[in-house]
Design a protein around this nucleic acid. Sequence first.
DNA 1: CTAACTGTATTATTAGCGTAATACACTAAG
DNA 2: CTTAGTGTATTACGCTAATAATACAGTTAG
Lengths: 128, 128
Amino acid sequence: MQFNTRTPVYLQVVDYFKKKMALGKLKAGDEMPSRRELANDLKINPNTVQKAFKEMEDQQLITTERNRPSRVTTDGTVLAQIRSEIVDDAVAVFVEAIQELDVSVDELVDKIKRQYKEGTYDDRSVGS
Amino acid sequence: MQFNTRTPVYLQVVDYFKKKMALGKLKAGDEMPSRRELANDLKINPNTVQKAFKEMEDQQLITTERNRPSRVTTDGTVLAQIRSEIVDDAVAVFVEAIQELDVSVDELVDKIKRQYKEGTYDDRSVGS
DNA sequence: CTAACTGTATTATTAGCGTAATACACTAAG
DNA sequence: CTTAGTGTATTACGCTAATAATACAGTTAG
């Protein structure tokens, strides 16, 4: 995992886990990695991880019983909203950036498709 | 003009002018506002404006002869690239945020159109 | 039981960046 | 010439995030 400098690392960690939940790679009730272990893996300070986990708790994405590894929430409604939150936020930022520039839908779709292809990801959803 | 807290103000000022140039509201050779005047209008510190102008000079968007108001570059190739830079950057950020989430083109276009409509802007390009 | 692991809390320090205050040099209009 | 306006440079301040070092409390595997 690589971080960009502009966004706080702890928020990037939050987003990282949000994506995992949205993708189903982390399911309701799954155990989260230990804070110390994750900090070691990501080569960041345990306190930064702690802040990220605190943030996720505040957002009710995870729950923690005392002195037990945190777990992904079992609240289905919360989990169900994660994906749309990510997408909606991204759309809002995107439109904010290009609005007024008179970009055609065709141009947008074309560029987005192109950008997808630069990754090595499955593009069946956007690719056709 | 309103600023968000996360992005540095001076970069938001740069983007503001980039958009103006991309839209043709600022044309090649046009005089830029005075740094102090602009700072006063935007209610920000003159040094913040100075930093923004310095950034625009580094990007060759404007040129300045000593003790004269800055002017929009007359370099056509630079001006021609501004719009595509803005759009491409926005697309890159956007795709980065939602890739792997398996979002269909239809869903994206639908959401983008919706978002456009929340503004009071002319949506003839994306609206149909 | 004990040892090693959980999460949590507190405090301090550091580094970087954005912002601010001020002074300087030059130009141009009156 | 003088004054008010340019852009420029230097220095310092303040905030935030990240790190760091500890300490504490509880659980669990051996």
